[in-house]
């Protein structure tokens, strides 16, 4: 296949030294194998995330995303914007939808953008990396690059909320999306049945109301164990962090013994494509994944 090019929106959490920096490491390795060229949108800014709602108001949120659209379109014309973070993707897609729906909002957005010396002329498409994999490649093509199948490893595919609702991946079901399970299986692993696949991890409430979020995380982890999973896999940076880093707190509170690794789909793909543990950013796990490290080349 010919090289595919996208305007890349990595998002705040993927930056060096930030909470999802290991996600970016693995995405870069995965893209090398798939011959995907990601060009960072120059000077991109934060999407505002969902939690910005209380302080931001509507137009300020949309203009933050609109600035990225204008920067992408000016510097990387014709390329779809691709986000790896669920919240970046959702926030940007939401703003695009609203601005396209209302000529008043578009006019206000353009007027605000003028202050930063920018304008939107063509509205770019906004896509999640999972969409790129499923739609622009397809499972068959993704499977062709597997050199080191994840044989015998059992994963709980935790899709979570924001790559699934309200937009989701085309053709998928909100209650039981299958694309993540299919990616796991395409990489040679086993996707266990998982009834907490689309349960919310608590999102930003993990920071503001940790007890509420941790009660949800407990269900998510417990179900993975109950179904025989050895690792949890997710496409979302906040799902990954929330489900991984609070297992110790949950153990103290609920007297459990949770210690299950939580990985990104791109880490599995990097290992299955013959990459090393370092290529997959496995050294970035707070709960290490020894079974995946053991089979890495």
């Amino acid at each position: 296949m010919a090289k595919k090019q996208y305007a890349f929106y990595p998002g705040c959490s993927s930056q060096k030294g930030a909470s999802a920096s290991n996600y970016l490491t693995s995405v870069e390795s995965m893209c090398k194998t798939l011959d995907i060229q990601l060009t960072e949108i120059p000077d991109w800014n934060c999407c505002g995330a969902s939690i910005g709602y209380g302080e931001a108001g509507e137009l300020p949120r949309h203009v933050m995303n609109a600035r990225n659209f204008a920067l992408a379109e000016t510097n990387l014309p014709g390329q779809d914007i691709v986000a790896t973070c669920a919240a970046c993707w959702l926030g940007a897609k939401e703003s695009k939808e609203r601005i396209e729906h209302s000529s008043l909002l578009l006019a206000d957005t353009q007027e605000a953008l003028k202050e930063a010396g920018l304008q939107i002329k063509v509205m770019p498409e906004i896509r999640h990396m999972a969409e790129v994999l499923v739609e622009d490649f397809g499972f068959e093509e993704l499977g062709k690059h597997v050199k080191n199948p994840l044989k015998g490893l059992k994963f709980a595919g935790y899709v979570g909320c924001q790559t699934n609702r309200p937009f989701g991946i085309a053709g998928e079901n909100f209650e039981n999306p299958m694309y993540l399970d299919k990616i796991i299986e395409t990489m040679g692993g086993e996707a266990v049945p998982y009834d907490q696949k689309v349960t919310c991890c608590g999102g930003a409430l993990a920071f503001s109301e940790p007890e509420k979020a941790q009660a949800q995380i407990k269900d998510i982890v417990e179900s993975a164990y109950d179904n025989g999973a050895e690792m949890i896999v997710t496409p979302c940076p906040l799902c990954q962090a929330n489900v991984e880093i609070y297992q110790g707190h949950i153990n103290n509170k609920y007297n459990t013994k949770f210690n299950i690794p939580v990985l990104y789909y791109s880490q599995l793909m990097t290992i299955a494509y013959g990459g090393s543990a370092k290529d997959a950013g496995l050294n970035g796990q707070v709960i290490r994944a020894p079974k995946l490290e053991a089979i890495a080349k």
Partner: peptide
Amino acid sequence: APKGQPTRAFSKLFWNNAIATGRVNE
């Protein structure tokens, strides 16, 4: 809005953090 509501406080903190430099400082 209720005073001392933790998510209200976090939302304000998050948005102001993000717009200060354009990117979140975790």
